[in-house]
Design a protein around this nucleic acid. Sequence first.
DNA 1: AGGCTGACATCGC
DNA 2: CGCGATGCCAGCC
Length: 126
Amino acid sequence: MPPKKNVEKLKSVLPSGAPEISFFEQVFEVAKLIPKGRVTSYGAIALFLGAKSSARMVGWAMNAAHTMPQIPAHRVVNRNGMLSGKMHFATPTQMEELLKKEKINVINDQIVDFEKKFWDPSIELS
DNA sequence: AGGCTGACATCGC
DNA sequence: CGCGATGCCAGCC
């Protein structure tokens, strides 16, 4: 039995009025669902959306997320918990600052206790 | 219309 | 153990 995409699960969490959303928009929605003080990875989001090999797309989506408000791109990092995308923020420290405000410590562009802060959509949205 | 690029992840040599 | 190549999908040139 082929891996069922979690798109349907996502839809159930979304506010009414999102019948069909593109992979791109799905990433936005998941990102917005990340609780404050928690983080997740590009791969985790991609996996949740049923395309584990499309982690790159998630990153690309974050790029577009810049133009959109209310999308906590700073809560999304690579699978090592490293702030690989901090250079894409207004300032190199922006991402770190935002995370620290949420009680997430960052040392050398690396999230402290990444595993504890990790928020897996595949689990949390089940 | 076709090819390059990208804030990743994984496998191979 | 480290670097290189590949997959994936959408946007941009």
